[in-house]
Design a protein around this nucleic acid. Sequence first.
DNA 1: ATAATACCCTACTAGTTCTATAGGAGTAAA
DNA 2: TTTACTCCTATAGAACTAGTAGGGTATTAT
Lengths: 136, 136
Amino acid sequence: MLSKKTKYGIKALTYLAKQEQNTPVSIATISKSENISLKFLESILLTLRKSGLLGSKKGKGGGYYLLKDPKDVKMTTVMRVLEGPIAMVPCVSLNYYEKCDDCPDEAECAVHHLMIQIRDSNLKIYGETSLSDLVN
Amino acid sequence: MLSKKTKYGIKALTYLAKQEQNTPVSIATISKSENISLKFLESILLTLRKSGLLGSKKGKGGGYYLLKDPKDVKMTTVMRVLEGPIAMVPCVSLNYYEKCDDCPDEAECAVHHLMIQIRDSNLKIYGETSLSDLVN
DNA sequence: ATAATACCCTACTAGTTCTATAGGAGTAAA
DNA sequence: TTTACTCCTATAGAACTAGTAGGGTATTAT
């Protein structure tokens, strides 16, 4: 299941990607437009800023804005920041690898092989999709 | 993330698929062989039986066995029984569709389109894989 | 200056899901 | 009748989810 955090985060990012100028948009504006709880969205945008995807401007007229061209923001990055590893099991994760407690031999594990296939196909989709693709 | 329930369930199913004869295998035997908590595995095998994938024999010499040829057990079925819907959001689920609270228009939703792609590619992999593929 | 606006940050909480565990009832074979 | 199994319900701790609360800090308009 996709968490609401990820879902809302993607929606907010596409909202920002739609802006002609890269003028800051306030949390409240996005919150109203996308029907997202203000405080929840606030925490999501904060993590997106800390991850380096968004910039922010304080004070009146402030808000959040994209730091890169939407074309250059891959969904692999977005998903990893918001949802965590793309792999469904740590033992097939490229960035967060961990050995399974119960598996004596990964090469023999049925789940392992299947999950590698799933990981690769998802990685391909996320890698070929950028924020600009989501806007249209 | 794949739940332990699903992971263990798949391991148990492939263990049963490996049996030459379809003689019943006890929970304890699978538990030891696959390093799975006995009581947790018990509840998993119970749901697999209730879903129609496994049969069981009570009493001495009893246990669980596959009801179908491993070739005929698609991973789509297995995943739906153990993990739930294959779609990552209810609004793109074929079997468990639900409208999103926050979305006024699905056709306009960026997340929706992306998740349809993910669903379809995963569905393809699970649909083309059967238990017999996992054994080898 | 100062008031208004908006982000920054920490902490907390109710509810749900996950990963088991416990214990007893029922059934079949030796 | 003992032994070896499955069947079923209930429970519990830990972790996670989806927020909520509230004050702090920076910026800008007046």
